[in-house]
Design a protein around this nucleic acid. Sequence first.
DNA 1: ACAATTTGACCCTA
DNA 2: TAGGGTCAAATTGT
Length: 354
Amino acid sequence: MVEDNMGELERNSLVHELTQGRDLTRQLQAHFHHASPSSSHEAQERLLLRILLSYNSALSMLSWNDASGLLRLSPGKNPTSRDFPEPDYKEHGGTDIDNNSIGDSGNNRKGMPRWTKRVRIPHGTAIEGQLDDGHSWRKYGQKDILRAKHPRGYYRCTNRGSQGCLATKQVQRSDEDPAIFEITYRGRHTCSHASISIDPSSSLPENENSNDVLIVEAQPQQQQHQQANLEQRKDHDELLDFYKSLAIITEGSSKNTLAAFSLPSIPSELHQLYPPFDAFNFSEDVTTCELFRENQNFHSQEDSKLDPAVFAASSVATSSRTNSRAADARGSLDYILDPAEFNTSSGNAGISSK
DNA sequence: ACAATTTGACCCTA
DNA sequence: TAGGGTCAAATTGT
C-alpha cells in the first residue's frame, strides 16, 4: 500500500529519516556514557528534539503517502515531476544558468516545488534572525504587487552562480498583520554549503555529527569548564528565545491536517511558559507554518522600521552569524515543516554526506 | 575593489 | 494586455 504510493525518492527520504533517528539516538547514548562538559542537559535536549523531529518526519511521510499517495504542492504543479525539481529553470534575457533544455518538455519553472511559510516577527525582534532559514540569499528584485500594501522581495540562492542552485524565495509582508511575513520558497537547494541547511544532518555541529564521538579540544580544565558553562548558558538562552518565538498556529482548514505531533522534549519550564507550543499542522496545497510569539503586546510602532524594501535583511551574512546550535533547531524544524523537503530530501543537497 | 542591494525596464504568462 | 517575475546597470555598503 505504502509501497505502491511511495516512489524511490520518498522511500529514500524515509530511510534517511529513520537512519538519522538511529544515529542521533546513538549520539544521545554516547552522551550518557561519556559524560563530559559538552554533554550538557541542553545538548541532550537538542538531540532528543532532533530524534523526535526525525521520527515524526518519517511518520509524516507515511501519513502523506497513505493519505494521498502524493505530496501535494501548489496548484499547477506537474504531478509527474514532483519527485525532484529538475534544473529546468532557463532564464530569459541574460545568460542561461544551465543549458539543460528540459524546460522544453513543458517542465518549466512552474514545475518546481513551491511552498509558503508565514512568519510572525514580533516587534523588537531581529528580523534577520527570525527569517534566517539557514540558507544564503541574495535579493535580486522587488516589486509592488497589485492591491498589496507592501512590496514583494525576490531572493535567490547566493550559490546560483557557483553551483547553479536554483532555489528562490519571495518575501511579502502581510496586509492584515504587518508583523507577519509570507515567505514563498521555490525549488529546493541543490547547493552543497547551506550553512544550516534544511538538511538536518548538515546542520549538526561537527562534534555531534560524527558518529558517537564527541571531540572536546584539549584546554586547561578550568577554562574548559568555564567555557562549557558559558556555552551551556548561551545555548539555554538561545533555546529559550527560540522556543519563546515558536508556537504553531493551526492552519485555518484543520480538515487538511495531515500530521500533528507534540514535542514532549521541550523543557518543562518552557512548556509551562509557552503552552501553545504543541503541534504542527499541515495544510493541503501550501504548507503554512506560523511562527508565533506569545507576546500580545507588540504593535506596529516598530513596524515602520521593518518595512523598507521588505527588509533586505534576511539573507546572506546572517545565517553564518547565527549561533549554530540554536539555528540547528530552527533548521531542523524548517525541514520538518517543508513538505517539498520531505518529498525530495533524498536529493543531493538534502543528505549529502557533507 | 568587491559584494550586495536598489530600481526601472524588459520578459513571460494567463 | 495587465501583472508578476527577472535582468542588469547604477548605487550603496564593506
